[in-house]
């Protein structure tokens, strides 16, 4: 470890990143609409989620098993989403 840096530095940097993502997302909503607007706003939401999971929730330093648990919910949600979408997308 370097000699001086404050232990709070990483979380403060992450917070700066979160605020930047929020502002970009809010600003983009003035210019973009429709699909592109949705994609951009969800992209920034995903960035925020990744930052919070990795740093605030310390998933970066966790054992593989814990990460697996963290991913399980999203995986199962994807199962539900994909199969339900399959129905709605192919209804006659």
């Amino acid at each position: 470890m370097p000699s001086t840096p404050s232990p709070f530095r990483p979380v403060l940097l992450v917070f700066a990143g979160l605020m930047a993502a929020l502002m970009l997302s809010a600003a983009a909503s003035y210019g973009l609409s429709g699909t592109s607007g949705t994609v951009v706003s969800l992209f920034f939401a995903t960035v925020k989620l990744a930052l919070i999971f990795a740093f605030f929730m310390k998933l970066r330093e966790q054992a593989g098993l814990v990460r697996l648990f963290a991913m399980a919910g999203f995986f199962w949600l994807a199962i539900a989403g994909v199969l339900i979408a399959a129905d709605y997308a192919t209804r006659g």
């Binding site: 199962i79 199969l83 399959a86 129905d87 709605y88 192919t90 209804r91």
Partner: peptide, 22 residues
């Protein structure tokens, strides 16, 4: 077991294609 629930909905108005997959 999580991938098969649509077989309860074969005679609902679920998509036939989804029905085949389920």
């Amino acid at each position: 077991g999580f991938l098969v629930w649509g077989h309860h909905m074969f005679v609902s108005s679920q998509s036939v294609y989804a029905g085949v997959v389920f």
